[in-house]
Design a protein around this nucleic acid. Sequence first.
RNA 1: GACCCGUUCGUCUAGCGGUCUAGGACUCCGCCCUUUCACGGCGGCAACACGGGUUCAAGUCCCGUACGGGUCGCCA
Length: 454
Amino acid sequence: MSEATPVRTRFAPSPTGYLHVGGARTALYNWLYARAKGGTFVLRVEDTDAARNTAEACQAIFDGMNWLGLTWDEGPDAGGDYGPYFQSQRSEIYERYLTKLTDADLAYEDDGAIRFRVPDRDITVNDTVCGSQTVNLHQQGLTRWDEEKSENVAANPDLVIRRPDGSFIFHFVNVVDDIEMKISHVIRGMDHLTNTIKHIALFEALGATPPVFAHVPLNLNADGSKMSKRDQGAAVGDYRDNGFLPAAVNNYLALLGWSPKDDREVFSMEELVEAFDLPGINQSNSRFDYDKCLWMNAEHLKALPATAFAEAAMPFVEQAGLPVDDDRIDAALELVQPRIQVLSDAPKWISVIFADEIEVEAEAGAKVSSRDDADSVLEALSSSLAAVSDWNDDDIKAAIVEAAGGLGVKMVALMLPCRVAATGSASGADLIPMLRLIGREKVVARIDAFRQSL
RNA sequence: GACCCGUUCGUCUAGCGGUCUAGGACUCCGCCCUUUCACGGCGGCAACACGGGUUCAAGUCCCGUACGGGUCGCCA
């Protein structure tokens, strides 16, 4: 029977001006589940709080989801049979459902507002992640916690579903929309778990069968605090700007609160769809680990074909003002692909190839200049490299070996001085290919200049 | 305050009564590889919140405590 019910999941964000990673993960789980089950993923914008909802705020959500590749089958722009997909445009539907309630005497007016008559009986939610719990809302709602007084005060257990100004309350529209949009599975944050009892009461009062619920644990900062907009890694847009791959972010987010139950960690989107299922969702909150997210991105970067990597890196190269038409760009990118963690690192690593002048980092420079033989080492390097007629990797290496031989030291001893003098840094991409790309004249000139500065 | 959910290495997690002297991953450290820098390979440090039960046997089941999170709105 349930097999016959088509899977329809939804992500219902409220436009806040950015897509939060917590929201993105919820969206991902809904998307993944719909894809895995051959179902439909619906995007619905919960913009009933008109004051703070703007077109730009909505666009930020769409941009974030599009970047992640979490495309929706129904929703804004995509259309669908159950629109409109903005709650602000669905008042007529809500009025119709409200009439159902009032006609059945399940709602009544109270001081201009309208309240739903909460039933005085046990209601049970069977959550896929958290198990089942039973509550009598009527009895529990008799008192309520007063924040200012710090004590419980008498309360009306009946739920306000429409304000005196005619606007509807979240709990009501949320349920109505899920009924109207034929949502089969509600996958959302654990913060809604307790509210779900209210929702079920509403579903039942409206004569609808509640969907399957799966409340996923929350993501917190590394220190256990709540993630807010300013926190590192909180906004999806930052990942795009910092050179993360969407697949890597999805991969990391998927693993934060869900596990395939084996030792696999690096997944493509297709593999994620294949492996994802509701029982794999964990029950406890998790903390965001930016380092591991970086590692994940590096893994995805390394797995990219060289052309795809170059394509992904190019915007960052261009933004840094590097000569994108230079024929050494592709070779340079190939050199850094296995080494960088985020695409935005690429320009830093390769800019030294194209720069007219370089600045030697103080710490790196000191490592070389503090050596007694610094001057003779640099001189040997300079003259040896200057004499290379065919500037290729083998001959460059041979020249360094030769310089070392002349000084009676191993080649290894010259690598760091050479790197620092030619690139200005003690670390970076594979040195000999780097020297090749920089070019003989520049390499020699830089070594000489560094020697002068000693 | 009431109610709800949770608690395995610093972090993400595997574990669904014996195979756990608790496995994998990130981070950190060491070794190897190597022309440097990295990658990679190998190895190391590091956890069952606490207390009671149940059981021949508990990380795994039950109860309590502590801690963390959430909900109690005419916010979403």
